[in-house]
Design a protein around this nucleic acid. Structure first.
Length: 326
DNA sequence: AACTCGGGGTG
DNA sequence: CACCCAGAGTT
């Protein structure tokens, strides 16, 4: 009985096609690669810092903070031993402040469980809370030159367009299948430049909404480009916007404006506490009016819930006297 | 599978 | 204003 425990098969790809794409993209990357500081270091710690920072955050915003962070916390040991409040403070304004706590936690996990050496295999990296499949692959490849595939949003989009066609109205493969595809097209011995090249192309040419197909070195090899060429709304940007619009299921608009969202006030609270002298606590009765002009006693439960959430994420230290950064 | 988690840049 | 982004953990 064939049970479907394994992931569904990936559409088969022509070896000649893969080879031409490999050659073309690597050649393009050799000429056009972006000059990024984490590409010139061999320090696994620096690579780890860059990868955590780059999660859901554009390169341009990470660049200055990457240098500042490494100056403040030059080594894994320095980061692990630092006051968490300092790590959270240096993190501004990258957002997703949990990542700051998580990054320090990873440093502490590496010291306690791996004798201070960041692991070089995906399986070991995945045992660290805060590292998922993408970051595990990125660290293994970019810090240790392991010949492994890894898939982020750029790579997912680029590989889909090159080998499967347009990702709209819906992707032709799921995440597990895309990882398998990425492994199948990985050029032997070239994992580092290949993975970097895919992300460079995705960030600068094969962008999400308005791809610059006219500048693409793989135009003649791209399934999606061929599909778009037959579309009445060609060029590419108009095609993608149209397909995305058609595919849109529900507006699922925000019922409330962002400035009244839970997320907004979490940010306000952390930002406020960053400006406080170290170890000084702020009573909730003071905190409420500071983050919300019309704060009333009826909203104490609401505030308490947000505080509890922040504590759970390791972003806040709360006791009966009030709250501060941990 | 769907939600949550920031914040700045862009058209 | 809407959408985007080198994801991961939780429910």
């Amino acid at each position: 009985m064939a049970k479907q425990t394994l992931s569904s098969p990936v559409p088969s790809l022509a070896p000649e096609h893969i080879s031409r794409v490999n050659t073309g993209l690597l050649q393009w990357y050799a000429q056009k690669q972006r000059d990024l500081p984490w590409r010139t270091t061999s320090d696994p710690y620096a690579v780890l810092v860059s990868e955590i920072m780059l999660q859901q955050t554009q390169v341009d915003r990470v660049l200055p903070k990457y240098q500042q962070f490494l100056t403040a916390f030059p080594t894994l040991e320095a980061l692990a031993a630092a006051p968490t409040a300092d790590v959270i403070s240096v993190w501004v304004p990258l957002g997703y402040n949990r990542r700051a706590v998580s990054l320090q936690s990873i440093a502490q996990q590496v010291i306690s469980r791996y004798a201070g050496r960041i692991p070089d295999t995906i399986d070991e990296l995945l045992t660290l809370k805060g590292i998922g499949r993408y970051t595990a692959g990125a660290v293994a490849c970019f810090a240790y030159r392991k010949q492994v595939a890894t898939v982020d949003t750029n790579i997912r989009r680029v590989l889909h367009r090159l080998f499967l066609g347009l990702e709209h109205p819906e992707p032709k493969v799921n995440d597990a299948q895309m990882l398998t595809l990425a492994e199948q097209v990985l050029p032997p011995g070239e994992a580092y430049p290949w993975n970097q090249a895919l992300m460079d192309l995705g960030a600068t040419v094969c962008t999400s909404n308005n791809p610059l197909c006219m500048n693409c070195p793989l135009q003649t090899e791209c399934i999606a480009y061929a599909e778009m060429s037959q579309h009445s709304l060609f060029p590419s940007g108009a095609v993608l916007r149209q397909l995305r619009k058609v595919a849109e299921k529900k507006p699922r608009y925000q019922a409330q404006p962002f400035t009244s969202s839970n997320r907004y006030f979490r940010g306000r609270i952390v930002d406020l506490l960053r400006s406080l002298p170290p170890e000084e606590r702020l009573p909730l009765s003071t905190l409420g009016p500071l983050i919300k002009a019309d704060f009333s006693s009826a909203q104490e439960d609401w505030l308490q819930k947000i505080v509890t959430g922040l504590v759970k994420d390791g972003l806040l230290d709360a006791n009966e006297d009030g709250v501060k950064l941990p």
